[in-house]
């Protein structure tokens, strides 16, 4: 096995472990123990981190896997977040390759954007068809974003560590 293949295999293994751990944390533990009254999102940060450190293609691939797991955690068909996180991975990777400088700032801005996109994707249906008031939906969104933000920096350093290892 060549050195580059070994690195690719190690990368896949490490990201698979990170995705699985995040799925367990987000979908099976913190869904029962909300923070600030909200269940946090963690999986989108992995797609963003992969895109920032490994580019748009790997960001997109990790985005598909993260989105698939997020749809499973949400008890819904593998459509909404599979598409959304793949799109986020591709876009963040593209922006880091063209406009943003790879690093914490690019990650933080992209992570916040990812959280807001995930919120918007989910909330729009409730606002349009569900008859929910904007204040109620925004309140949930704010709590969700605040709870999720706690996990942004730990995920950043884990993905940074992976990028240095492989």
């Amino acid at each position: 096995m060549t050195e580059s293949r070994k690195k690719a295999a190690a990368r896949i293994l490490l990201f698979s472990a990170l995705l699985l751990f995040s799925y367990i944390l987000q979908g099976l533990i913190l869904n029962r123990h909300p923070i600030f009254g909200a269940k946090p999102l963690i999986l989108p940060f992995i797609a963003v981190g992969a895109a920032v450190f490994f580019g748009r293609v790997k960001g997109g691939v990790v985005g598909i896997a993260a989105g698939f797991l997020m749809d499973l955690a949400y008890n819904q068909p593998t459509i909404m977040f599979t598409l959304t996180l793949a799109f986020i991975g591709l876009m963040v990777g593209y922006l880091v390759e063209t406009v943003l400088v790879k690093g914490l700032f690019a990650y933080a801005v992209s992570a916040l954007a990812a959280l807001l996109i995930c919120f918007a994707v989910e909330a729009v249906g409730y606002l349009i068809a569900g008859g929910a008031s904007a204040s109620a939906v925004l309140g949930v969104g704010l709590r969700q974003t605040a709870a999720s933000a706690l996990f942004a920096i730990p995920v950043y350093y884990i993905v940074l560590g992976i990028s240095k290892l492989v």
Binding site: R56, I64, P77, I79, T98
Partner: peptide, 26 residues
């Protein structure tokens, strides 16, 4: 032009195919 590179299109296509299969099977 860079955004719509060959590999990027493949990744996007895979995501769309997964979503379509999920929608159709449902």
């Amino acid at each position: 032009k860079d955004l719509i590179s060959k590999k990027g299109i493949i990744v996007a296509a895979v995501a769309i195919v997964i979503a379509l299969i999920a929608a159709v099977t449902m």
